[in-house]
């Protein structure tokens, strides 16, 4: 619909044709006070200069933004986005300008890649390259391909479509909402279909990850550390649109890390995990070593390492059991 055509409709009619306009109208204070059955052009004509001033409102600007919003949303809702199957990083340079020593680094959906290297070694830069789908136009000169093709620019600039979702230890919930309300809000912002089913799945999944269960009515800000992490992971797996998930360490306490990773890979995510915890690092299919701003090595997890992982998990289980018994008030060893 052209800008001129849009003006011939009333807000009510527009909402019927484009239900997603609800969020747009919600951001336009003046419209809420109007008769929704009247044509937009009439509503706009009724606004005198003083009212426009009061609402900090500009007619031409409004109609242009309405038009932009509709065309972008239609593209977003209508087209079945081709999903991201693989992400390929082509080598660039490290901080000293030496070329990186690998042919290509491939991340596939349902796989886990761990990233190791000291702080400041260039993990953030690698992530930023991926997020920006670098085309030899960042300091590292790396190139990133999606499904083996040069990706289009919308990954860079669109507010609705980000390549990477991030989870880290430092993240907290800050909204004053219950778990249920919070997930509803998130589902709405994503315009997710059958939100109710999805929300229930998220809460169930999070409760399965966290040691202690929480209710849909629990305020998100009063969740424990482990519960918060569990909810963030379940929500990111099931409701975030980003195909890549970066995890910056997951603490050992209060959350089943193996299950957490399984949920993410089960939802076709590409999982990247910055960690120096041997159990997590060895759970990955491959790991990359970063040094001096460059990718120094790509290591496929060896059979020996997988065997070692089993032992580590057993030891970890032992620790977890002791922890549970301590919590239960038991004496761990007699005198």
């Amino acid at each position: 619909m052209s800008q001129q055509e849009l003006l011939q409709y009333s807000p009510q009619q527009l909402l019927k044709i484009y239900p997603f306009l609800e969020s747009f109208f919600a951001g336009q204070n003046w419209i809420l006070k109007q008769n929704h059955q009247q044509k937009l052009i009439e509503l706009l004509d009724q606004l005198d200069e003083e009212q426009q001033e009061d609402h900090a409102f500009d007619k031409a600007d409004f109609i242009e933004q309405l038009h932009d919003f509709i065309s972008q949303m239609e593209a977003f809702v209508g087209q079945k986005e081709k999903s991201v199957e693989t992400l390929t990083v082509l080598p660039g340079n490290d901080k000293s300008g030496n070329p990186e020593n690998f042919e290509q680094l491939i991340f596939k959906t349902k796989t886990i890649t761990s990233i190791v290297g000291p702080t400041g070694s260039g993990k953030s830069r690698l992530l930023a390259d991926i997020e920006w789908v670098a085309q030899a136009d960042t300091p590292t000169l790396r190139k990133v391909l999606i499904n083996n093709e040069k990706p289009d620019n919308s990954w860079r600039f669109s507010g609705n479509k980000k390549l990477v979702a991030q989870l880290s230890q430092n993240m907290n919930f800050v909204m004053d909402l219950s778990v249920q309300e919070f997930l509803e809000l998130h589902a709405k912002s994503r315009m997710a279909a059958n939100a109710d089913v999805l929300i229930k799945r998220i809460i169930d999944a999070a409760n399965e990850l966290a040691g202690e269960k929480f209710l849909p009515e629990t305020p998100i800000t009063s969740l424990s550390g482990g519960q918060s992490r569990a909810l963030m992971i379940a929500d990111t797996a099931l409701l975030s649109q980003s195909p890549v998930v970066l995890i910056d360490e997951i603490e050992n306490a209060g959350i089943d890390r193996k299950k957490a990773l399984k949920i993410l890979t089960g939802e076709d995510k590409i999982v990247l995990m910055a960690t120096h915890d041997p159990i997590l690092a060895l759970m990955a299919d491959q790991r990359i070593v970063i040094k001096n701003g460059g990718i120094h090595k790509i290591i496929q997890t060896t059979e020996g390492e997988k065997a070692m992982l089993k032992q580590l998990e057993m030891a970890d289980q032992k620790l977890q059991n002791l922890r549970a018994r301590l919590r239960g008030g038991e004496v761990l060893a007699e005198a």
């Binding site: 980000k162 907290n172 919930f173 800050v174 998130h186 918060s228």
Partner: peptide, 12 residues
């Protein structure tokens, strides 16, 4: 410092 979900909601 905020969750992925809050980032997405805010950006929306």
């Amino acid at each position: 410092i905020v969750s992925q979900a809050e980032r997405e909601v805010f950006a929306a």
